[in-house]
Design a protein around this nucleic acid. Structure first.
Lengths: 133, 133
DNA sequence: TCGATATCGGACTGAAGGAGTCTGATATAT
DNA sequence: ATATATCAGACTCCTTCAGTCCGATATCGA
């Protein structure tokens, strides 16, 4: 249905939160989740994925938590979404290389690929810093 | 996951097919489905929705079928997707009026609304005639 | 050293939505 | 009449999403 997953939503909120407090130390999943009414466990999962993709740094132990791996200007909405949901692709039928699995007679593949490209561009042009402003 | 439903895909293919043969009479669900390896029953369902939203005209009985309700230049990809999947909205949390149901502290609502707007624009700027060219 | 507090990883469950089928009704041309 | 269409809705899988839970590991402070 051309919809973002809730996890991506949560991810954007979390990264946004960290951006807003950039340079003020680290925040735990609990810290972040509390402010937005997001289940802690789920928030933790989302944050873990962001760490694995190099967007966040994590610190174990007490007084631990998460911080941005780089300044908010250099993290895009696409980065976050891609880290959580994988590649942004509006059609299920085509692979990363643009091949159509379903049917070679698909006449709308190419136009949709262009639309997809525009969406990706729009998302990658939107930095977290920009969201925060 | 920011993905179009298969029904929308099928709808685009169908409308595209009808556009390619615009002025050559009507085509049944069976006619259209056959060429693309789409299940007939499902194709029929999709076509019905397009009729209900005024994009296609239908003709009962033998030698019946579907035709475009207006020239391909005046049907956009968004028209088709909207007819099948409903309003294009990348976030589940906001209603048509842009209100956030989940939490009033959502900090990413407004930026995502703008991204959504761009997507809608891209889709509504893409006419079926353009796809076909 | 012990314990509290974190992240981390995977498995798991329930609910929701998508894909596709089926049945029956209505309309129309031959 | 009959064959061929659309039409409408209910229905069944099956996948995916949302969220939970448990055990393991790492770190800080007392």
């Amino acid at each position: 249905m051309l919809r973002l997953s809730k996890k991506s939503d949560y991810g954007l909120m979390a990264v946004n939160h960290l951006a807003r407090h950039y340079g003020e130390g680290s925040f735990s999943a609990r810290d972040i989740a509390a402010g937005y009414g997001i289940p802690v466990g789920l928030m933790a999962k989302v944050l873990q994925r962001l760490v694995r993709c190099g967007l966040l740094r994590s610190q174990h132990g007490s007084n631990g938590g998460y911080t941005l791996a780089r300044p908010p200007e250099f993290i895009s909405a696409l980065d976050v979404i891609h880290a959580i949901d994988g590649p942004v692709m509006i059609t299920a039928c085509q692979t990363v290389r643009g091949e159509c699995v379903q049917t070679p007679m698909c006449t709308v593949k190419e136009p949709l690929r262009k639309v997809n490209e525009r969406i990706v561009n729009a998302l990658s042009a939107l930095s977290i810093a920009e969201i925060n402003a």
